[in-house]
Amino acid sequence: MPRRYITVAEQQQVIERANRRCEYCKSAMDYSSQPFEIEHIVPIAEAGETSLDNLALACGGCNGHKYTKVEAI
């Protein structure tokens, strides 16, 4: 399946669903000094899809740490 961009409407839905907090560490988007990103829970590299069920709001630190990982101890 070809990769598609995340629409502005999808971005807004993810942000609202997450209550403007990182879905991993729960830091507040409004008080963070780092930018937040919409990321794929199951990465595109692992055949993840661009759908609302596979998108999460993440702070730059969490998204950078997660990268393409899908499992943890």
Rank of each mutant, 00 (worst) to 15 (best):
S51D: 15
N19K: 12
E71G: 02
V42C: 04
V8A: 14
G60T: 02
I15Q: 14
Q34G: 02
I15S: 08
D53Q: 12
L57I: 07
I15W: 13
E49G: 04
V42W: 03
G61E: 14
Q13M: 14
L52D: 10
I38V: 14
C62K: 07
Q12K: 15
I73W: 14
E37T: 01
I41C: 02
Q12I: 13
R3Q: 13
V8Y: 10
N19M: 01
R17D: 08
A47W: 08
H65D: 09
D53R: 05
I41P: 00
Q34R: 10
A9M: 06
S51Y: 00
Y5V: 01
S27Q: 05
R3V: 03
Y24T: 08
K69P: 00
C62F: 05
E46A: 13
F36H: 05
C25E: 07
E37K: 03
H40F: 09
G64C: 07
D53K: 11
K26Q: 09
S32K: 04
E39P: 00
C25Y: 03
E37I: 00
C22R: 03
P35D: 06
G64H: 12
D30T: 04
K69E: 14
Y5R: 11
E23I: 06
H65C: 02
P2A: 13
N19I: 00
A18T: 05
I38S: 08
S33Y: 08
D53L: 03
I38L: 06
G60H: 09
R17C: 06
I15K: 15
N54Y: 05
R20Y: 15
G60Q: 10
I44R: 12
E16F: 04
G48E: 12
N63T: 05
E16S: 13
A72Y: 14
G64W: 08
V14C: 12
E23W: 07
Y5Q: 11
A9I: 09
A47M: 08
S27E: 10
G61V: 07
Y67L: 10
H40C: 01
R17L: 03
G61C: 06
G64F: 02
Y31W: 11
G48N: 11
E23C: 09
Q11L: 01
M29P: 00
R17G: 06
S32W: 02
V8F: 07
M1N: 11
L57C: 11
G60M: 03
R4P: 00
Q34D: 11
L55R: 02
D53F: 01
C59G: 04
Y24F: 11
V8E: 15
